[in-house]
Amino acid sequence: MLCSVIPHLPVRGDVDAPLHRKTSPAGSPVAGYYYVKNGYEDAHTLNAVTVVLGDYRGFDTLGETIVVFTAGAACLLILGRRRKS
């Protein structure tokens, strides 16, 4: 069933795939194009992945850090030493 969708997916490396275009089929600007285009003017950082991660999607990364922190807390709570009663 999964394989039946393959002919409808964009072929590998297609520059005109909807993810890579300047505007989406509905006419709104696409994020990936904007990030590469304006990343340096906005943050003076050459690595576009760092700009997306730390600046444009900083809230995403903050949530992710909190998830990792919560996972550590859960691990501590699950495996913490039980007091001998």
């Binding site: 990030y35 590469v36 285009k37 576009a48």
Partner: peptide
């Protein structure tokens, strides 16, 4: 930033890193 087609899309990379 002159030619965004010369670089792969950074958005999925950032998402997958997290």
């Amino acid at each position: 930033g002159s030619d965004p087609d010369a670089y792969v899309n950074p958005l999925p990379h950032a998402l997958m890193l997290t």
